[in-house]
Design a protein around this nucleic acid. Structure first.
Lengths: 158, 158
DNA sequence: GCGTATGTACTCGGATAGGGAATGTCCGAGTTAATAGGG
DNA sequence: CCCTATTAACTCGGACATTCCCTATCCGAGTACATACGC
């Protein structure tokens, strides 16, 4: 079970866009330079963020991406869900109903099995933590020197 | 991000082995019949459980698998870790140090970035929930009819 | 009848192919800005 | 000098290859039981 690296790229790019909102919109190529990433592939990873409304895209010359909402209104959960999809990590295929389960009384499988419930509970705790962290919180935990350095980097290659 | 289906298979098989400990050891083929699963592939999924000590294997005729410990001592976290591996879902590749990060002052990257810390915190909450659920808890949440049915199924094809 | 040696059947363990999703790359549609021409 | 039409460059969006990991399968090593033989 491994999360796509696009999540890390997406969150970092969101932070940059939050820092440099006054310079928005920023094209993908510029963002790729900030982190030395393959531009085409980074674009593919940011597309679902735009489709989810987390990023706002502008076409044409001087176009690019800007943050779609305030940093306080975007949580880590939003970014993860947009890129990874909303499917649960644990997929219950109801194998309890197969084989020996064929002979079960009707209604015995009305409720989800204990394994599925336990997994859902754990995933819910995970989601709750992700939802409690906003981009603004992440910015507060990041040294201001990083923002200044990134701003200089972008303005230098303008 | 999708968890291997082997986890579901493994936990269900552990429950069966806990129920029918007096009939142990049970060969993989018998367990596969209980859930109508491909026997060879199920065996491959149970192997890491045996390597981790969660299951105890016995070779030769009348051999098979038995539970390695008491159901109270085996948690969902143990099973998930054994099959999925202990690696974290979110892999931080430190892209903050690339590109614009090259010009950072030494020591700025001594601590993990806020994104990584937030992800770790969420994963820790997830692991904590999984670790708090033991096989005994799952058995308590499962109707006794399922155990009786499974026992009859095994004894019938003995 | 009893003990022993042998053979056979059954088990797990690791090594070997196949399929689908994530990764990586490409081209086309649309928009903006600059530019050149005319008034 | 100003306005407008045209052109050209730049952007995102989606469609197309490639690689890697999960899925699925196979063969070999080891063990216990059953059997046959000798005593």
């Amino acid at each position: 079970m491994r999360m796509s690296e696009g999540v890390e790229w997406g969150v970092h790019c969101c932070l940059v866009l939050a820092w440099l909102d006054d310079l928005a919109p920023l094209p993908v190529g510029r963002l790729a330079e900030v982190f030395d990433l393959p531009p085409e592939y980074l674009k593919k990873q940011l597309q679902p963020l735009a489709k989810a409304g987390i990023l706002r895209s502008e076409a044409g010359a001087r176009g690019g991406y800007r943050l779609g909402s305030d940093p306080e209104a975007i949580s880590l959960m939003d970014v993860v869900t947009a890129i990874e999809g909303g499917t649960d990590p644990f997929q219950c295929t109801e194998i309890r109903q197969r084989g020996a389960g064929r002979a079960a009384a009707p209604g015995e499988f009305a409720h989800p099995c204990g394994i599925s419930k336990a997994m859902r509970k754990a995933e819910l705790a995970w989601r709750r933590e992700l939802a409690s962290q906003t981009l603004a919180d992440l910015i507060a935990d990041t040294p201001a020197s990083a923002e200044r350095r990134t701003r200089r980097f972008i303005e230098r290659t303008a």
